[in-house]
Structure formats: C-alpha cells, structure tokens
C-alpha cells in the first residue's frame, strides 16, 4: 500500500522519500566510508584512498595486541552467550507461565538493567570487584556482561513464548511426556527463532560492551578497549581495519536476525 492511498494524492510522498533518503544516507554513509578507507595501501587515512590494499588487515591480524584483545572479547562473548541464554530463557518461562497478575511488575524488574545507565552499573560493579579483589578477571566480566545481556534474551524469548500455542505442550503431556520433555521436544524447537535472536543479541552486546568493562579492567584489554586506547593515542588505518572486521561480524549476525523474521523482537526491545 502506498502512502498516496493513506492521504489522497496530495500527500507529498516524494518529499517524504527524499527526507528519508537523506536520513538513511546519514546513517549508513559513514560506515561505507569507513570500510572503503580501511582498504587503503597508504600509511595514512584519506578519502578516497590513493591506492588500495589489505596492508592494514595484515597488520591487525599479525599484531599481538590486536589479536589478544580480539580473542579476549571472543572468549568473553562465547562464555556469556550460552549462560545468558539459559538464565534469560528460564526467566522468560517464569514470566510467561507464572501468575498473570505478577507478570508486568516482575518483567519490569527483570529487564531493568536495560534502562540503568551503564556508567552507573559499571561504577558500582567496579567498586564491588575491587572489594572482592576480582577486578581485571573473568569473574568480574562474565557476571557484568550477563547483567546487561539477559534482559535482551528475556524480551526476545518472551516474545516468542507469547505467540507459542500452549496446547502443543499440553498435547505432548497427554501423550506421556513429562513437563520437562514436553518443553524440550516441543516448546524449545518451536520458539527457536526467539532463542537465536536472544543468543545473537547477547553475543553482539557482550562483544561490543565498552564502559562497564572499561571500569573493570586494568591490564587486560577487550577489543573495544584496545580500540579506544589506540584511538586516544593516534588515528591510524589499522583502527579502520579493525572496525571493519567488527562491522562485518555484526552485520552478518544482524542479517541472520532479520532473515529469521525476528524484527518483532527487536521492536519489543525498544518498548
């Protein structure tokens, strides 16, 4: 349906399209420029680059600092994702199957870390980690990341559960499946899109997390922190190459998310 139909032929549909094109350009152009610049063969950044090459990718992928930080970030995200999925899915089930009158209140509490400024959360966690002497270690990063990723799992799995037909589970139970097996064989396979979305959100959020980890680390460096400190020191083409690598991973995961039709859950995230 076109907007003309909404408003009659007088609606300036073209003007709207024009404005939106500019906004989308504003959103996407910087990233395109970043990607192009990352392929410069020069030792400085310029647009368009005078010559092209993968020189800076080579440098990133052979530099110990970059590789260390990339692997630290990957390790954290890989540990956080399954844990976040388990915790969040359990919580989403509790909210979905628990008493209806408590649902809204409990849900608000369970996703509240989303609206808490991460700077405040980071500050508090840093103090606690210092007191427990676990700062600069996985013992601090993992729970911290879980706290900010679980709400996304609760929301995306919760959205899937809402559209799930509970009679399917009842059918399984009448056929002799215990509650656990009914969930395992029937519910989980059917709500898989929600689980996948939750996992992707968890992975990306953990991988990109900056401020909380920034507080918690002293010597160890995750990728965002390594990028930040490099950036504060000097803007070199290697930073564009690293950025493009991260971008490629997240764009791939985002595309997967969209193709699985989980936009609705992305939508719910915002509400």
């Amino acid at each position: 349906m076109s907007s003309q139909e909404h408003y009659g032929s007088r609606f300036p549909y073209r003007l709207l399209v024009g404005v939106v094109t500019v906004v989308i350009f504003f959103l996407e152009a910087p990233l395109v420029i970043l990607v192009i610049q990352s392929f410069t063969a020069e030792s400085y950044l310029a647009f368009p680059p005078p010559s092209y090459g993968v020189r800076w990718y080579k440098e990133v992928l052979t530099s110990e600092d970059w590789l260390n930080s990339i692997s630290l970030s990957l390790i954290i995200a890989t540990i956080v994702t399954p844990l976040s999925l388990i915790f969040g899915t359990m919580a989403a089930f509790a909210l979905d199957r628990g008493p209806k009158k408590l649902k809204n209140g409990l849900q608000a509490i369970m996703i509240s870390p989303m609206v808490l400024p991460h700077i405040v959360l980071g500050l508090g966690l840093f103090k606690m980690a210092l007191e427990l002497d676990i700062d600069d270690s996985m013992l601090a990063y993992i729970p911290a990341h879980l706290t900010i990723t679980i709400p996304f799992v609760i929301i995306s799995v919760g959205a899937s559960l809402q559209t799930f037909e509970v009679t399917l589970e009842e059918a399984a139970r009448s056929l002799g499946a215990s509650r656990f097996w009914a969930v395992w064989h029937i519910t989980l396979p059917i709500i898989r899109p929600g689980l996948v979305a939750g996992a992707i959100f968890s992975f990306i959020i953990s991988f990109d997390e900056f401020i909380i980890t920034f507080f918690l680390t002293t010597f160890q460096r995750t990728l965002p922190i390594e990028m930040f400190s490099t950036l504060m020191y000097q803007v070199r083409p290697s930073i564009a190459a690293v950025s493009t690598l991260t971008l490629a991973v997240t764009a791939f995961l985002t595309a997967m998310l969209m193709l699985r039709g989980q936009i609705t859950s992305g939508n719910k995230v915002i509400k």
């Binding site: 037909e165 009679t167 139970r173 009448s174 056929l175 499946a177 215990s178 509650r179």
Partner: peptide, 15 residues
C-alpha cells in the same frame, strides 16, 4: 500428572 494418566486428548486446534 497428565503424562501419567492414560488419556488421549484431541484439541480444537488439533495441536
């Protein structure tokens, strides 16, 4: 519990 009763159940939406 339901899974230990020997009942066959058919739902309106078939499930």
């Amino acid at each position: 519990p339901p899974h230990k009763r020997k009942v066959g159940l058919v739902f309106q939406n078939y499930a």
